[in-house]
């Protein structure tokens, strides 16, 4: 009995020291990690909306049924409103689309203008096959979303206007479908001017 107690105590001591050390390092690194993630998103937001104007202001949109930090859960997504920093006019929106690709969930930052036309896209995160699906990140492919509207936003095989990456239809579909679904959800909330339809 005493033996077990002694062993247990030693194990506990080791674990305790480990926990304290980790807690300390975590308290130092967590804010940096968070800040970095935020910067990256901010940076991506700016890139995909750069054509909307020079000085932009980003505000989380608190629309019922849309604002959700976890995005696309329950078919809701976190939309960020983009407006002119000076006049305050609403210029467009950005959101992150989550699509299930071949070997990862591909996250795409999407920028749209206030009429629902895509003004920019960039891949935030993907772990697709290098040389195939991973090419979605590259400009020639992701760039073709620019100027597309909801109905055009699917791969050609599915009747849209997005050329799939050769040999990586699943990734191409994941990105274009998730982007389209995001736009459709926003349309349902009447976020676009002029009643953008198919």
């Amino acid at each position: 009995m005493g033996e077990i107690l002694r062993l247990g105590l030693i194990l506990m001591l080791v674990a305790l020291v480990a926990a304290v050390a980790l807690g300390f390092v975590n308290s130092k690194t967590a804010p940096i990690i968070e800040e970095q993630e935020r910067m990256r998103r901010q940076e991506a937001m700016r890139t995909v909306t750069s054509s909307l104007g020079d000085s932009l202001q980003f505000d989380s949109l608190a629309v019922e049924g849309l604002a959700n930090p976890y995005a696309m859960v329950d078919r809701r997504l976190a939309v960020v409103a983009v407006s002119d920093a000076v006049s305050g006019d609403r210029l467009g929106y950005t959101f992150v689309a989550y699509g299930k690709g071949y070997s990862s969930t591909v996250q795409t930052m999407v920028g749209v203008d206030s009429s629902g036309r895509i003004v920019g896209c960039s891949i935030l995160y993907q772990q697709e096959t290098p040389g195939l699906g991973a090419n979605a990140e590259n400009q020639p492919w992701i760039g073709q979303f620019e100027g597309k509207r909801i109905s055009q936003c699917s791969v050609r095989k599915d009747g849209g206007e997005i050329d799939s990456i050769t040999g990586a239809t699943i990734t191409s579909r994941a990105v274009s479908d998730s982007v389209r679904e995001g736009l459709e959800a926003m349309r349902e909330q009447d976020l676009f001017e002029g009643g953008e339809r198919a």
């Binding site: 030693i10 194990l11 480990a18 980790l22 690194t29 990690i33």
Partner: peptide, 28 residues
């Protein structure tokens, strides 16, 4: 200091701690 009988759990805790450290520092 580590008794023979619990050495493997102790090693694992030690290793896991360092790995988590690397994970956090690298992430930052």
């Amino acid at each position: 200091l580590i008794p023979r009988k619990v050495r493997i759990p102790c090693y694992i805790v030690i290793i896991a701690t360092f790995v988590t450290l690397v994970d956090m520092v690298m992430n930052a």
